[in-house]
Amino acid sequence: MTATRFLARMSLETEIGAALSDTRIRLLEEIGHKGSINQAAKAVPLSYKAAWDAIDTMNNLAPEPLVVRVTGGRQGGGTRLTEYGQKMVAMYRALEIEYQAALDRLTERLNEAGGCDIRGFQKLMHRMSLKTSARNQFSGAITGLRDGGVDYEVRVRLDADTEIAAVITKASAENLGLTIGKEVFALVKSSSVMLSVDQTMRLTARNQLWGKVAEVHAGPVNNEVTLVLPSGRSVTCVVTGESCKALGIEVGVPVCAFFKSSSVILAIYD
């Protein structure tokens, strides 16, 4: 019977968790080759929407964008892998080669020593993996903590120009071990994000992020709207088709995405 082998399915980790996986790397590689998100998604394969979701997540979590939208040209625009994105792909593939070699050496030693329950270990790792349904996933360092008695206001810096605020219970803050400078995930459901096009409107929502509409996916009742912030990060929300029409929401329109601090969920990796 052929011995079970550990296969390298590597992910690159930041201080707060996984940032790049094999599927995402293949998507980046195809974008670099084809300059088209649609063609790259078909080659992976991924749906067009899943590909854009992955790109938005990577750009939100990375120190700088890995992929940028390109406008104009005979083809009407496309997507381009940035120099930073190219470096990340090259680093991933180089590490992957070394990673697989190390796993092969480990498997050989384990088999020589009488083997081990590799399949059981693989199942355990699979069950312990974590995914979230929150459409908007950001990462950043904590820049402010304010004790409100029963709750905490936490400020998280996403980039040089953008901070978001979260309000969580005091017990949650203590359980997470939050401190100034600590890296955290900030998760926001798309249904918690609202839109405004009026720059003079005053809002009670603590988080107000201005950007331009990049994508509008129309549905029978609701539309999914994605806007890109000046930093290259993105925010996605779900609004009714009627609201989109009333606000004049279309690609290129400046829009403010706003959400309450209580709608932000914080997470960390131990």
Rank of each mutant, 00 (worst) to 15 (best):
L130C: 13
D159F: 11
L130E: 12
S191N: 12
N223H: 14
T169F: 07
V197R: 07
Q208M: 08
V150W: 00
G144W: 06
L227I: 06
V213E: 11
G148Q: 04
L203G: 03
L195W: 03
Q199C: 09
H126F: 05
N175A: 14
D161L: 14
L247F: 03
H126P: 11
L229G: 13
M194Y: 15
S243F: 07
R157N: 15
S196D: 10
A186Q: 12
S172I: 12
T162P: 15
G248T: 04
D159G: 11
N136L: 00
W210A: 10
H217Y: 15
P230G: 06
G148F: 00
M128K: 13
I142P: 04
L145K: 00
E153N: 08
L227D: 06
T132D: 11
N207Q: 02
I249F: 05
E242M: 05
N207P: 00
S129V: 00
A205S: 12
N207H: 00
S191E: 10
G232F: 09
Q208S: 03
L124T: 07
T143P: 05
R157F: 04
V154S: 12
K170I: 08
V150T: 01
L176C: 13
C237P: 11
G181K: 02
N223T: 12
R155T: 14
G241N: 10
V225D: 09
R135D: 06
R233D: 12
C237V: 08
R233H: 09
A134N: 01
G211I: 15
V188G: 00
G241E: 09
E174L: 11
A166V: 08
P230C: 10
L158M: 10
